[in-house]
Each structure stands twice: as C-alpha cells, then as structure tokens.
C-alpha cells in the first residue's frame, strides 16, 4: 500500500475532460435543462454563470449523477455516466464535488473527513490515508487544524477542508457548486485562492459561481446559462467584459452593479 501513496503523491494531476450532449432534465412538467451541450477539455477551467433558477447547479449535479438526467449523454473521464450500467461509485471516485453548504461530516475531525472515503472506498491503510489527507490539508493551508471538528472551524475553513476532502480521492475533475455563496465575505478570498492554485496545477474544474472577478481571472472559458439553455459561451475575458447577447449583458450589469436601480423594472 505504501507505494500507492507515494505514487499518488508523486503523480501529477491526471486531468479528465467532460463532454455533455443534449442534456435534458425535468422535474415533473418543469423542464430545468433544455438540451445542454458543453465540452470541458482536460485541464480546462470552466465557470458556469447565470441567474438563480437558470439550471446551472442542476447541470453540475447531473455530471456526477446527484441528479438523474432524462435525456442526453455525459462522458466523464472515460465513463459514460448516463449509461444505465455505469458503475456510479467508480465514476464518482474520479470526480470531486464541493458543495455550497460544505457538507462536512460533523462527527469526524477535519483529518477524518479527508481519510474516511480513502480507507473505505480506495481501501488505503489508515497511515497512507492520513498522509494523503495531511498533504491535501496543507495544500488548502489547514494542516495545523487537522484535529478540529467542523463546528470548530469558520465557514471558509470548512469549505477548504471540503476541498481537501475531495482532493484526497485524487480526482481527475473537480465540480464546485457555488462554493463561496454561503461564506462570510472576509473568508471568500481564502477559498478562491485555493481554487486558483488548483487551476494553476492543471486540475479540470467546472465551477458554478457568482464571483465574476474569479471567473474572469481564473476561468479559461465562461458559460452563461439562462432558462435551462446555454445563452453564450466563450473566453472568460470576452464573456464577462464584452458579452454579445442581450441577456448576458443584462445579467452582468445587475451582478456587477447591484446598487443600480432599474426604474423600468
């Protein structure tokens, strides 16, 4: 087992891409995703932006099958996750997920949060798992708080532990579902810094976010969604700074200048 740890530590991030074709998802008669096509190349960082209710979180959750799509195909790291015979658990090992509400396990310490899936799913020894966990806690700047429990950590620290927890499974793709939306403003920066480093290291990332500064700076591409469809996508700088579609312009104007009062509305 020792060699698997050292090889995991030595190994560069192995990046997997995502390929989504004609994805549709309905809740009853309410169609939330109306035929989404989206490609994420290995090592690419793509930010999903758009108003609430536009379907971006649902799209993200479809990628690791937390939501079951009705129609369409998703390929993730050599798996066709929409194939009914796919081994969901095996697929999910390659896909790290970070939630808006962190969802750390409250009965486990930060370190145990990072080791439990390693020992139970990857069958790593306790010592190997702890070594990987400590490495990843250091990566998010929290190795000194490894023995704290979630309720003893700030929101930003909890979210960084959640990132370390996902990284401890050596994922090839990371999904972020509004990772900073539930945070106090002063801790947002720490989480974004961790994500920025991760992007630099070459991780494939699909990020639902309202942080336009982060999207412009870190993302390779930005995808704007509204009403269950992709309205506009392109290079981050172009979509955020010079959008072409009226709906994108309207959305960005509201997000970037929230104090602006639109009398016509």
């Amino acid at each position: 087992m020792a060699e698997s740890t050292s090889s995991a530590a030595a190994k560069q991030i192995q990046a997997a891409g995502v390929s989504i074709k004609d994805l549709r998802k309905s809740y009853g008669s309410n169609e939330v995703l109306k035929g989404i096509d989206l490609e994420v190349a290995p090592g690419e960082v793509v930010c999903l932006i758009g108003p609430s209710g536009s379907g971006k979180s649902t799209l993200l959750r479809c990628v690791n099958l937390l939501e079951q799509p009705n129609v369409g195909t998703i390929h993730v790291g050599g798996f066709e996750s929409t194939d009914p015979d796919v081994d969901i658990d095996k697929m999910r090992r390659k896909v790290g997920m970070v939630f808006q509400q962190f969802n750390l396990f409250p009965h486990l310490s930060a370190l145990q949060n990072c080791t439990i899936a390693q020992t139970k799913v990857l069958k790593r020894s306790q010592a190997d798992a702890a070594a990987v966990a400590r490495k990843n806690l250091a990566r998010v700047g929290l190795d000194h708080l490894a023995d704290r429990f979630p309720d003893q950590l700030s929101g930003g620290q909890q979210q960084r532990v959640a990132i370390a927890r996902a990284l401890s499974m050596d994922p090839e793709l990371m999904l972020f579902d509004e990772p900073t939306s539930a945070l106090d403003p002063e801790t947002v920066g720490d989480v974004l810094a961790v994500m920025r480093n991760l992007a630099k290291e070459g991780m494939t990332m699909l990020v639902v976010t309202h942080e336009m500064g982060f999207a412009r700076e870190v993302a390779d591409r930005v995808v704007f969604m509204d009403g269950g469809v992709v309205v506009e996508e392109g290079a981050a700088e172009q979509v955020v700074s010079a959008p072409t579609q009226p709906r994108t312009k309207e959305f960005l104007r509201r997000v970037l200048d929230p104090t602006h009062i639109d009398i016509a509305d």
């Binding site: 658990d89 095996k90 969802n103 750390l104 799913v121 996902a166």
Partner: peptide, 18 residues
C-alpha cells in the same frame, strides 16, 4: 440528518450502504 451528508458521502464514491 441533512440530505447533503448522504450526497457528500456518495460523491466521494461510497456505495449507498457504506
């Protein structure tokens, strides 16, 4: 127990029973 706990565990590749 919040639903997010099960989702987080499943997202880490744990089978449902685990």
């Amino acid at each position: 127990v919040p639903k997010g706990q099960l989702e987080a565990a499943r997202s880490l590749g744990m089978p449902h029973w685990r």
